[in-house]
Design a protein around this nucleic acid. Sequence first.
DNA 1: TTAATTTAGTTAACCGGTTAACCGGAGGGG
DNA 2: CCCCTCCGGTTAACCGGTTAACTAAATTAA
Lengths: 342, 342
Amino acid sequence: MNKKPTIKEVAKYAGVSPATVSYVLNGVKKVSNETKKRVLEAVDQLNYYPDFTAISLSKRKSNLIGIMLPLIEDTPASVFKNNFYYTEFVSGVELVSRNRKFDTMITGVGNPEECRQWVKKRNLDGLIFLGLFPEKLYNEMKTLNIPIVLIDTYEKYTNLFSNIQVNDELGGYLAASHLIELGHKDIAFIATDLKSSPVDAKRYQGYKRALQETGIKFNEKLTYQTYDITFEHGKKVAEEILKSEQKPTGIVTVSDVLAIGIMKALQMKHIQVPNDYSIVGFDDLSISEYTTPSLTTVRQDIFEKGKYAANLLINAIESEDVEHQTVELPVELIIRQSTKAL
Amino acid sequence: MNKKPTIKEVAKYAGVSPATVSYVLNGVKKVSNETKKRVLEAVDQLNYYPDFTAISLSKRKSNLIGIMLPLIEDTPASVFKNNFYYTEFVSGVELVSRNRKFDTMITGVGNPEECRQWVKKRNLDGLIFLGLFPEKLYNEMKTLNIPIVLIDTYEKYTNLFSNIQVNDELGGYLAASHLIELGHKDIAFIATDLKSSPVDAKRYQGYKRALQETGIKFNEKLTYQTYDITFEHGKKVAEEILKSEQKPTGIVTVSDVLAIGIMKALQMKHIQVPNDYSIVGFDDLSISEYTTPSLTTVRQDIFEKGKYAANLLINAIESEDVEHQTVELPVELIIRQSTKAL
DNA sequence: TTAATTTAGTTAACCGGTTAACCGGAGGGG
DNA sequence: CCCCTCCGGTTAACCGGTTAACTAAATTAA
């Protein structure tokens, strides 16, 4: 209906040229106080606010940041993969970007070309990559010439891009140490993929360090990989454990989701947690306090991670800063009901 | 680096004017096959793809749809409110909008003015409102002149906007009927807010109908309202129930989240589910299969709802269709372990 | 006093597309 | 043979801002 006013209308109302209005609004060139006042008055009267599309076209800057998620596929199953994690993270990003006058777009990633087109088509000012992506994509990123923040990424890229990590090694260490203190000696480690996931690998290191420091012999047979993070995959690995000859009494996992799946599978076979098995999760998702038994876990503040990522990214965008920063957020052991002294 | 080519460069390469390239690409004006071929060839050679910002400016059409969420506040608690629901929904929207060459933006809503500015600034082509918003916002919407899809909204707006509902009445009916069949007579109903939430109100109607049809007297005292959907609020209402004189044996809730909170609170007091209380949830979130006991619930396909919403919206955008559609998606009772014959 | 510089503002090109208006040539009708 | 229409294309204005280059007036320096 009542179309929003353009800068020209504001200019006419204030009796100046459009350029002057632009200068006042951007504060990039000196304008007399008198004129400035008139322009601001006009802006106020007409309820003017600039058209980001136009700004984007002329400045090549969109006030838009993109979040890349590794996979949002058609099948519900894979959409939900990790979904708790994603939501909390995205909420954090959205919050700070909104406060800082940026808008947020989300997409699943296809190939590198698709990614580049997305950025170029929309003039994206910055990008957050959540999780792990095909190698080719990282090369593509460098040619994009916009600030990029990587979350939970490969070690080798931490010098090339800003990135946010969590003290994963310590997390693994805390989880294992907790079980050891409770008297456990046969402690399984459940990862998704130790080769491809650096996050898992570091937690694994921490786990091994805890064993070593207390003189417990590391047993390869107690390491499992699920290759995916779903409740279902947790269930499957529990069955493997039950079939194995080397039975653990304690289980360290890389995700609450996996831990919950494992607990469920055990309980369905009337095996008790924590009486028969002690289980430690990772993340401290909101659900983890409400499972039965509630889950002992290594907490990381995912929401905070999202906020941090957005601030880091927008700082880089606004300051044209080329420094790459590596940030490590803390972890904390939360002891609940799923672990118990042997 | 190697800047992406503009339409002018494509035109030069093909030996035609930019206008012709535009006509070929948009198929809006007749172009000879010969020329068309040359243009397409040039597009291919130069790897041209159009700049959406420019298109957006000249066409006043952005290929962008917005999702409005009721509240994403600073406190983690409120961010997570409903988060499972949001994620699944947003995933669905993202999937189809990406397939249909649209991009998706998400934001929390502030006041109506903020909403209007968001739409205008970005030239948004359509909007999805998930949940309930302040009354003033709905008036604002109508003046926006873009297609809008409302999800789970007030009855009175269903003629004014396209909207997607679920058969909530049936859902409430199924939940209550299930408990009645199991021999329960004292059945509590846990809503968030019966006055302001039409969704809850309809489920409540279904619940009452089930009672009535089987000749069970409705007892007002068995109705509870939590005013929010969090695990914590579930816990609180469980404590209220335990303090009440009118103890139910069955509990119908409007959300799995609430149901899980209730179960947890009961179990912490060593009260057994389903032995002492039978509980029915609503939604069938992915977690609900993995609680202990697993949750009997009324399933709605939230992911599907998101896909449906996006398709409806984009259809409206592309066809300039002014018809408002009301869609009702089915519900289904999923019987698991949290309910048991009395 | 005059030239040089600073100040405050305007003009106009530009960002990368779209599209209404225009134009020259071929074909058809009277 | 002339006029009209249709076809296939081009030209140029426009979308709503930004900003380099310019200008006129005021101030400063010589």
